[in-house]
Write a protein that binds this DNA or RNA. Structure first.
Length: 281
DNA sequence: CCCCAGTCCTGCGGGC
DNA sequence: TGCCCGCAGGACTGGG
């Protein structure tokens, strides 16, 4: 669920860690099965204790803390992970706690209810292999119409599935893929190779508008209430969704279509069959 | 190259 | 009321 807007909101929300020194790394106390921590909690602790956080970044759906030793501490929230500087929604799922000194923030928590997320410490070389340009496409906020056409235009895959391919473009997940295609007026099952240049332009514009609006609203907190910003506050973009999880409702774009739900690559896709046509007319 | 099913995990809501 | 089952979907893997 955390996609580009939610992860970017988390990154901005933890700006108080900048310049801080990591005083300690502790297990969060979650009694469940431990999350994946590489290269293991003990080694990670030994390598980051005393390091200074010089820069925060976002790599697609991951948050990166660049340390003064050149290493990258990467948080990968996957489905239910959160990065918090405030107290968590439920203390029971705090997986990792960093105590900080010398910055504005005094702690940084990694919280994860389902525990599918991971925390990784990379050397620059490891970072390049895992999150460099060969592994991760350009950020969705940087993509132009030409970039979409060049990177996706020869593929025969369905455009919605291709949009979620992080090697093609980084940051778009299931929820925003449906919202972007609806805003662009493109049917999710269209093959990339059959999409015209003007439609790639519409897609690029729609992606920028949807993702930037979602960032302004600080992301989408769905009905399960899991997603929170770094201060444990809900996002607001769920109230702006046009199609996601709205099967059977009238289309807010054309007012006459009805939102459909289909499954693509084992994930729910929502679209309006009237204003997102299966073939260009 | 692409597709599909399965895996990791927990909580929730629908159906009976 | 309570139980079971399916669903949620990010990243990855193995088989075709």
């Amino acid at each position: 669920m955390p996609e580009l807007p939610e992860v970017e909101t988390m990154r901005r929300g933890v700006a108080g860690v900048l310049g801080a020194t990591i005083a300690s790394v502790e297990d969060g106390g979650c009694p469940r099965k431990p999350i994946v921590v590489k290269p293991g909690l003990a080694r990670l602790r030994a390598r980051v204790a005393g390091a200074r956080i010089e820069r925060t970044a976002r790599a697609g759906k991951r948050i990166v803390l660049w340390l003064d030793g050149g290493e990258a501490l990467v948080f990968e929230p996957r489905m239910t992970g959160l990065l918090l500087v405030a107290d968590p929604p439920d203390q029971a799922y705090t997986r990792l706690r960093l105590r900080l000194r010398g910055g504005r923030a005094r702690q940084l928590l990694y919280w994860d209810r389902r525990g599918l997320g991971r925390v990784l410490l990379y050397t620059p070389r490891q970072y390049e292999a895992a999150l460099g340009p060969a592994a991760l496409g350009p950020d969705a906020l940087e993509m132009t119409a030409d970039a979409y056409r060049r990177r996706l235009g020869r593929s025969r895959r369905a455009v919605k599935v291709a949009l979620m391919d992080q090697r093609a473009v980084a940051g778009i997940g299931n929820l925003y893929a449906s919202e972007i295609l609806h805003a662009a007026g493109i049917h999710p099952q269209r093959r990339c190779s059959e999409i015209a240049a003007a439609e790639w332009a519409a897609l690029a514009a729609a992606a920028g508008e949807v993702l930037e609006a979602a960032i302004r609203y600080e992301g989408s907190t769905l009905s399960d209430g899991t997603y929170r910003n770094a201060l444990n506050q809900q996002g607001g973009y769920q109230n702006e969704h046009r199609v996601y999880a709205k099967a059977g409702e009238p289309c807010p774009r054309c007012a006459r279509g009805v939102i459909q739900r289909i499954v693509q690559a084992q994930r729910s896709t929502y679209f309006c069959s009237r204003c997102q046509r299966a073939r260009r007319s």
